[in-house]
Computed example of a mutant assay.
Amino acid sequence: MKFIRIILFPIMPFYYVITWLRNRMYDLGFKSSKSYDFPLICVGNLSTGGTGKTPMIEYLIRLLKDEKSVATLSRGYKRKTIGFVLADQHANADTIGDEPFQFYRKFKDITVAVDANRQEGIGKLRELKPQPEVVLLDDAFQHRKVNAGFNILLTAYNNLYFKDMVLPTGNLREPRSGAKRADLIVVTKCSKTISDAEKSMITSKLKLKDSQQVFFSYVDYASNVISENDELELSKLPKFTLVTGIANAKPLVDFLKEKGQQFDHLEYSDHYSFKASDIDVLASKSLIITTEKDFVRLSDYNPLKSKLYYLPIEMVIDKALEFNTTVSNYIN
């Protein structure tokens, strides 16, 4: 893969120029971007994935749902439907995508919808009775047809955007200058023990505008794994099979190794569509631990129901009170 990216290096300047020009067209008003008169928060990144957008959306849901009626709007990556779909009791990963389905399963008091056209999706949501008061846009930082009132940009500690290049040689969807559109930048997946000196060094390299703020966060893993009907204490598990279909499984693998867990790892690509042959392999395992995103896709398979568990995670933000206040001030 690295060799192919090196070969494709001559293409990178063309990709850079095309994406830079596209952004400039929006910045200068040659391409139209629609603004809205209600709170619209965009969560996104510059890279191709693995920055923790889903935990960030869930953090915002928990922060806001008791005070405001909240809706999430995602593209619904790899779903088997088209157009606008509102999650209901018939929803699953095939109809709305795995991450939106995860939101729907976990938070029963919010509205979950998908639409690749964010303008149309927002319009459909605002036609609902009652209207959602706040819309969270999942992975829409490059969707410039919508001008969100508040943009949260994520960058992973182990792959900071200022160290990266645009596709196809790097992982950036657009030039690093795109970060200037963000209101907040959150460095995700940090160590719990990251020092103030390192935070200062990273902050200086982000080259923030005066109006921008930066926060640091880490992933907090639960002490129990959960199935449809049961919980098991992580520290007491026998040897198990870890199954991941996410962009970057390394933090989870490192965490389990640090805890002294014994496991074999079956690693699949992000948003992997499990085939019948994959399910046959997994059905032969005695105990499977997976991520919540993978769980919502695998739990429908009857041969796996008695052996399939997921490890819950939450995003923890350093200076959470300051972060929460900044978001609440925008909402209000």
Results as ranks from 00 to 15, higher is better:
residue 195 S to C: 03
residue 240 F to L: 07
residue 243 V to P: 05
residue 173 R to M: 06
residue 210 D to Y: 05
residue 179 A to L: 13
residue 164 D to W: 00
residue 186 V to G: 01
residue 204 S to A: 15
residue 220 D to I: 02
residue 232 L to G: 04
residue 157 Y to E: 03
residue 157 Y to H: 11
residue 222 A to S: 10
residue 243 V to A: 09
residue 189 K to V: 05
residue 194 I to K: 07
residue 169 T to I: 10
residue 175 P to M: 05
residue 238 P to H: 08
residue 215 F to N: 11
residue 187 V to K: 00
residue 154 L to I: 12
residue 189 K to I: 02
residue 164 D to H: 01
residue 181 R to N: 11
residue 201 M to C: 03
residue 186 V to Y: 00
residue 162 F to A: 03
residue 196 D to K: 15
residue 220 D to E: 15
residue 228 E to K: 15
residue 163 K to C: 05
residue 240 F to I: 11
residue 172 L to S: 10
residue 205 K to D: 08
residue 206 L to W: 03
residue 158 N to I: 02
residue 213 Q to R: 14
residue 238 P to K: 11
residue 185 I to Y: 06
residue 176 R to P: 00
residue 185 I to M: 08
residue 216 F to Q: 11
residue 224 N to D: 14
residue 164 D to V: 03
residue 213 Q to S: 15
residue 176 R to E: 15
residue 186 V to C: 07
residue 154 L to W: 07
residue 204 S to H: 12
residue 214 V to K: 09
residue 237 L to T: 15
residue 161 Y to R: 06
residue 174 E to Q: 03
residue 184 L to W: 07
residue 240 F to C: 08
residue 188 T to S: 04
residue 222 A to H: 10
residue 223 S to W: 07
residue 206 L to A: 04
residue 192 K to G: 06
residue 227 S to N: 11
residue 184 L to Y: 08
residue 238 P to Q: 10
residue 166 V to N: 01
residue 244 T to Y: 07
residue 246 I to W: 03
residue 176 R to Q: 15
residue 167 L to T: 06
residue 223 S to V: 13
residue 160 L to N: 02
residue 229 N to E: 11
residue 204 S to N: 13
residue 189 K to Y: 02
residue 194 I to F: 02
residue 159 N to L: 07
residue 192 K to Q: 09
residue 171 N to L: 07
residue 168 P to H: 02
residue 208 L to C: 14
residue 228 E to I: 13
residue 216 F to V: 04
residue 181 R to S: 09
residue 172 L to P: 00
residue 169 T to D: 08
residue 184 L to N: 12
residue 156 A to E: 12
residue 227 S to T: 10
residue 207 K to F: 06
residue 208 L to Y: 10
residue 199 K to S: 02
residue 181 R to W: 09
residue 201 M to W: 12
residue 166 V to S: 00
residue 186 V to E: 02
residue 217 S to D: 13
residue 232 L to E: 05
residue 175 P to H: 00
residue 190 C to R: 03
residue 230 D to V: 06
residue 187 V to L: 01
residue 175 P to Y: 05
residue 228 E to Y: 10
residue 201 M to H: 12
residue 163 K to T: 12
residue 185 I to N: 03
residue 226 I to S: 05
residue 203 T to F: 00
residue 166 V to T: 06
residue 180 K to A: 15
residue 182 A to I: 12
residue 244 T to A: 12
